[in-house]
Design a protein around this nucleic acid. Structure first.
Length: 568
RNA sequence: CGGGGUAUAGCGCAGUCUGGUAGCGCACCUGCUUUGGGAGCAGGGUGUCGGGAGUUCAAAUCUCUCUACCCCGACCA
């Protein structure tokens, strides 16, 4: 690549509308340009990175037994009506009509199309398992696109789907894909964690998210330093291993005028918030339901809304309804004689001699004990985990980090094969729905994640495998100096001949401008050619972050060849 | 969808309150000089002041309206 021949519109100043590191960098270094909200053009340097990431994904998936296809992005509504998702999908799916007034959509995902393909094409169980993927553009009309290509509306995604006769072979493929994702992210040079995840609307089976660790990540992850255990904080299981101690004191009703919060109660009584419980009233399918968590814990709404009696999505009871239905007011609620179903979080249920509201304005009970003072109906997991909690696998105390979700793999079961009548004859000749898996990997988001993780000390440090090019050749005054020009072009073509990806700054620019751009782009190596060193028969050779070496052109090229080999 | 903000040259911004015919830095174009860390001198404005409507002798500026973009939240995963 020659700078005089490609568009690399670097920016001296930070664009006003960019917030996070990767967005700022990608705009400033000339990798991308925004067309409209959530829509980006990938310019040559950015595209080079994108293609490298794609190719690593291809190699690893092909190795793992998957096959690549390319499916249409514009899809007929019929398929989506068949699966039932035409009505289920909200406005995030962009819909349109063709000239015959037929409905189409711009695909946010490809389950329907791939299921349709396989039901028509796969005719024998002997062709299974069938593992299909594509690297394609997706469109999701996100409510709020942001952070550049990190959360764009149009983006490149690798989506894979596997089809199986039975669970066992599915598990095998799921494991293979899980491992392939690890290989992909490792090869790209990303520090990542695979975490247990909530499959959400995608199914009810096993599900794992792959997160690239970064401060700017949108998700909080909880993990054990002593094992592989890791989970999204939103779905991490909270456990309590302590056995409930025996009561040591008699229940006591205390006047607590004007004291309405856990903080105020613990201050007033001089006890830790973890010695209190808070009682939250939410709407339920058969009237209000009480949820009890320890004073220092927070309710996990997703967990709570999965309780059978609780309405989903979780809705807190309004003040008026609270008074009408339970006769109590906010700030003095407690589980004793509440008269509605109560779910108690494990940690709260293991408390003895705790403090809670007395269901009477201005009063609390202290030294309350389950069983003795109030029935313990049901102990459940309804809170968010906290840093320092025991990990669900018991291996250690949870630590939190932030992550960027770049991949998510799901077990789909027979959700789509059932609704779309995708069946296969088993060995006994019986028609049985395919068992399916689904494997997503955000390719454009990975590029942003690479930047987030490798931008340090005011500059980008591209991992060799995914750098836009291996080496940045800065020719000092190449337009005026014939000697420099000849040496630079010679080195450039020799690199091309040796399969070295080189970005040659042959512009008629002052050296300072070229150096500044080279610093900004941040390629792994830099070679500077100028009259000064050429007089000694050498060029300047620099690995990112290291001292400059003076080498002959031959030596420099040999070093690059070695670096190239080392990276593949 | 709710709240807040912004929209003036390729980029960053001033001018808007108080209406008077478009401005700064960088970039860009021409010439000369310069040339190892974002050059100097001289010349050049490249603009639908986001769009539309209105008030006015006169609108970047005031009014109404639409749109786009950014931030926070809700939503989604």
């Amino acid at each position: 690549m020659r700078a005089s021949h490609i568009l690399v519109p670097t920016l001296r100043e930070t664009p006003a509308d960019a917030e996070i590191t990767s967005h700022i960098y990608m705009l400033r270094a000339g990798l991308i340009r925004q067309l409209a909200k959530g829509l980006y053009t990938w310019l040559p340097l950015g595209l080079a990175v994108l293609r490298k990431v794609e190719n690593i994904i291809r190699e690893e998936l092909n190795n793992a037994g998957a096959m690549e296809v390319l499916m249409p992005v514009v899809q007929p509504a019929e398929l989506w009506k068949e699966s039932g998702r035409w009505d289920v999908m909200g406005p995030e799916m962009l819909r349109m009509k063709d000239r015959h007034d037929r409905d189409y959509c711009l695909s946010p995902t490809h389950e329907e199309v791939v299921t349709d393909l396989v039901r028509n094409v796969v005719v024998s169980y002997k062709q299974l398992p069938c593992n299909i993927y594509q690297i394609n553009t997706k469109f999701r009309d996100e409510i709020r696109p942001r952070f550049g290509v990190m959360r764009a509306r149009e983006f490149v995604m690798k989506d894979g789907y596997s089809f199986h006769l039975e669970e066992e072979t599915f598990e095998e493929t799921y494991r293979a894909m899980f491992n392939a994702y690890g290989s992909i992210l490792s090869r790209i040079g990303l520090e990542y964690r695979a975490v247990e995840a909530d499959p959400g609307s995608m199914g009810d089976g096993e599900s794992h998210e792959f997160h690239v660790l970064a401060e700017s990540g949108e998700d909080a992850l909880a993990f054990s330093p002593n094992s592989d255990y890791a989970a999204n904080v939103e779905s991490a299981e909270a456990i309590s291993t302590i056995d409930r101690p025996l009561p040591t004191a008699e229940i006591e009703k205390i006047s607590t005028p004007g004291i309405l919060t856990i903080e105020a109660v613990s201050d007033f009584l001089g006890i830790a918030p973890s010695r209190t419980v808070k009682t939250l009233i939410v709407e339920g399918s058969k009237g209000p339901v009480a949820l009890v968590v320890r004073g220092d814990h927070t309710l996990n709404e997703a967990k709570a809304s999965r309780l059978p009696l609780v309405k989903s999505p979780l809705t807190f009871l309004k003040e008026e309804a609270l008074l009408r239905d339970t006769g109590v007011t906010k700030g003095s609620i407690g589980p004793i004689q509440l008269g509605i179903p109560i779910f108690v979080d494990h940690s709260a249920s293991n408390l003895a001699d705790f403090t809670c509201g007395a269901n009477e304005a201005g009063f609390h009970f202290s030294n309350v004990n389950w069983g003795r003072d109030v029935d313990l109906t049901e102990s459940v997991d309804i809170r968010n985990v906290q840093e320092g909690d025991l990990a669900a696998d018991g291996s250690g105390l949870l630590e939190f980090k932030r992550g960027i979700e770049v991949g998510h793999i799901f077990k789909l079961g027979t959700k789509y094969s059932d609704s779309m009548g995708a069946t296969i004859q088993d060995r006994s000749g019986k028609n049985t729905p395919f068992v399916m898996g689904c494997y997503g990997l955000g390719v454009t988001r990975i590029v942003a994640a690479i930047v987030e993780q490798h931008y340090r000390d005011e500059t980008m440090h591209w991992p060799i495998q995914v750098a836009p090019a291996l080496v940045h050749l800065v020719a000092v005054n190449n337009v005026k100096s014939e000697q420099v020009r000849e040496a630079a072009f010679s080195l450039y073509s020799r690199c091309l001949d040796s399969g070295i990806e080189i970005y040659f700054d042959d512009r008629d620019e002052r050296p300072g401008v070229k150096f500044a751009d080279a610093d900004l782009v941040g390629l792994p190596y830099r070679i500077t050619i100028g009259e000064r060193t050429l007089a000694n028969g050498v060029v300047e050779f620099q690995s990112a972050g290291k001292e400059i070496e003076f080498l002959t052109a031959d030596e420099a090229i040999q070093k690059l060849i070695n670096a190239n080999e080392g990276s593949s």
